[in-house]
Amino acid sequence: MRSRKLAFVLALALCLGTAWAIAAKVMSVSVRDGQVRETPSFLGKIVGKATYGQSVDVLEEQGDWSKVTVSGGVAGWMHKTALTTGKLAMSGGSAAPGSVSGKEMALAGKGFSAEVEADYKRSHGGNFAAVDAMEQVSYTPAALLAFLSKGDVKPQGGGR
Rank of each mutant, 00 (worst) to 15 (best):
E38Y: 05
E38H: 08
M78V: 11
R160D: 10
A23C: 13
G109E: 07
V137C: 04
T39Y: 03
L144H: 02
G86K: 15
R160T: 04
D64R: 10
A106F: 11
A108S: 08
S28T: 13
V116L: 15
G17I: 02
D152T: 01
D132P: 06
Q156Y: 08
G76A: 09
R122N: 06
S66F: 03
S94N: 13
G53C: 07
M27P: 01
S149Y: 01
I22S: 15
F42Y: 07
M78Q: 06
V29F: 03
T81G: 02
S30E: 12
L83V: 00
F128R: 14
D64H: 02
K25I: 02
D119I: 01
V70P: 01
A106V: 03
E135I: 00
Y120H: 11
R32E: 13
S3K: 07
G86I: 05
G92D: 14
G53N: 11
A129T: 14
Q35K: 13
V153Q: 07
E115C: 04
G86C: 05
A118Y: 08
R32W: 06
G44S: 10
S66Q: 11
F147Y: 14
R37N: 01
E61A: 10
K103I: 00
Q54F: 08
G158Y: 02
Q156R: 14
V153Y: 12
K5V: 11
K103L: 08
A95T: 09
G44N: 09
T18K: 12
E135F: 00
P141F: 11
R122F: 02
W20E: 14
A7P: 00
G34V: 07
K67I: 00
S30Y: 04
A96P: 06
S113V: 04
T140P: 14
G159K: 02
S71T: 12
S99L: 05
V100Y: 11
K49W: 12
M105N: 01
G53E: 07
R160C: 05
L145G: 05
E135S: 04
L148P: 09
P40C: 07
S41Q: 05
A114L: 05
R2S: 06
V137M: 13
K25P: 04
R4M: 02
F42W: 08
V26Q: 15
A143M: 15
V9C: 12
S3L: 03
Q35V: 00
E61T: 12
